[in-house]
């Protein structure tokens, strides 16, 4: 297993797409700085305001970028035929798939936490003593939200890996990830209450605030799930999709 993990690490660091997706995720830092400078200037005119925290507002960018990383980890192998070369060297498909999942989890968690913390720190430093709303709570209060955000990125990247293995298609897996992250939450919003909130509480993007015991959104209000349950649902997403992906890899001829 150690040998296959180190092989997957070489695979990940030796293709340009890895750095493109990490670069796209890191754009959050730049956007966070721009956002803080903008709302800081508004605050200088009006005295104070309540702006959204950049590491929350731009989270979908990091989620999407690193979900692409998770998808490509497996679909690039199916698209090129590399999967057959890989399976000849590692005929135990469970070992290969677990190693891929492990490397995707480590790489995306490290990237997401670095980007989130960097965005957090730079935006607070630029905000300084201004009253921007998001910069007025202590770091310890913000920590659950940061950790939940980081975990959600990794969960989504693993969902991407699982869907990629199940569909063997980059486009198919990406469309599914986009549906989970953007389309479905948008549609559920317009269900008649209380069903919109009930179902929305189970959707990936809304699990993050529930884990941190915060309001889901102004439209949906508070969530239904206590933090531990929201965390369990967050873990269920990758667990289910990885299981489906593993069976597809194991059962079907490569």
């Amino acid at each position: 297993m150690k040998a296959v993990l180190s092989s997957e690490w070489v695979k990940l660091r030796s293709v340009a797409s890895t750095f493109h997706t990490i670069g796209a995720a890191a754009a959050m830092v730049v956007l966070g700085i721009a956002w803080t400078v903008y709302v800081g200037a508004l605050a200088d005119e009006r005295g104070m305001l309540r702006a959204a925290a950049p590491e929350e507002g731009f989270l979908p960018l990091v989620q999407m970028s690193l979900a692409v990383l998770g998808v490509l980890t497996i679909t690039s192998e199916h698209a090129t035929g590399m999967i057959r070369t890989s399976l000849v060297t590692v005929p135990r498909r469970s070992t290969l798939f677990l190693a891929k999942a492990g490397i995707v989890a480590l790489a995306t968690l490290a990237t997401a936490m670095s980007v989130l913390l960097l965005t957090y720190v730079t935006s607070r430093l630029i905000a300084g003593e201004r009253h921007l709303g998001f910069n007025e709570s202590a770091f310890t209060n913000d920590l659950p939200m940061l950790l939940a955000s980081g975990l959600s990125v990794t969960a989504l990247a693993l969902v991407g890996l699982g869907l990629g293995a199940a569909m063997r298609s980059t486009a198919g897996a990406l469309v599914s990830v986009v549906s989970l992250l953007f389309v479905l939450p948008g549609v559920i919003n317009y269900l008649p209450p209380p069903w919109n909130t009930r179902i929305a509480a189970l959707l990936l993007p809304n699990l993050v605030p529930q884990i941190a015991s915060e309001r889901m959104s102004s439209r949906l209000g508070d969530g239904y799930l206590p933090p531990w349950a929201a965390l369990a649902v967050l873990f269920a997403y990758p667990l289910i999709t990885l299981t489906i992906g593993y069976y597809a890899l194991k059962r079907k001829d490569a």
Binding site: K11, T80, M82, R84
Partner: peptide, 11 residues
């Protein structure tokens, strides 16, 4: 088996 079964972006 198939010389083309490689990821073209890798050295």
């Amino acid at each position: 088996l198939d010389a083309g079964a490689v990821h073209g972006g890798r050295s």
